[in-house]
C-alpha cells in the first residue's frame, strides 16, 4: 500500500523546509507554500526513493503541518518520531 504525505494547510506557514527535502515532490507557490508537482496536492503520494526524506520533513517541519497517511510501518496517522 502506498504512503501519502498529508499537508495540514491550516498549520502550514510555507517555511520551505519540506520543499528543500523533497524537491522532486514539492515546489513552492508565489507565497512560499508547498505545491505538489503532480497528483493530489493535499495527500501527496510518496515514492520509495522519497520515503526517508519525507520522514525527515515531517520531523523538521517547524509548524508540525505534515504527517504520513496510510500504508507501511510507522504510519498509524501519527507523525513519525520526534
Amino acid at each position: 500500500m502506498s504512503r501519502t504525505l498529508h499537508i495540514d494547510w491550516t498549520k502550514c506557514d510555507g517555511r520551505g523546509l519540506c520543499t528543500e527535502l523533497l524537491p522532486g515532490l514539492l515546489g513552492r507557490d508565489d507565497w512560499g507554500y508547498p505545491v505538489a508537482r503532480r497528483g493530489d496536492r493535499t495527500d501527496i503520494a510518496i515514492g520509495r526513493d522519497d520515503a526517508e526524506a519525507a520522514d525527515e520533513a515531517i520531523k523538521l517541519c517547524p509548524k508540525l503541518a505534515l504527517r504520513v497517511v496510510g500504508g507501511g510501518a510507522g504510519s498509524s496517522g501519527r507523525p513519525a518520531g520526534c
Binding site: R15, E20, A57
Partner: peptide
C-alpha cells in the same frame, strides 16, 4: 534566522534547523 524562513548562504533551511 530559522524563523524567518531564509537560508544562510549555501546552508539550506533544514540544515539551519538541525
Amino acid at each position: 534566522l530559522n524563523r524567518s524562513g531564509r537560508r544562510l548562504l549555501v546552508l539550506p533551511r533544514f540544515s539551519i534547523s538541525l
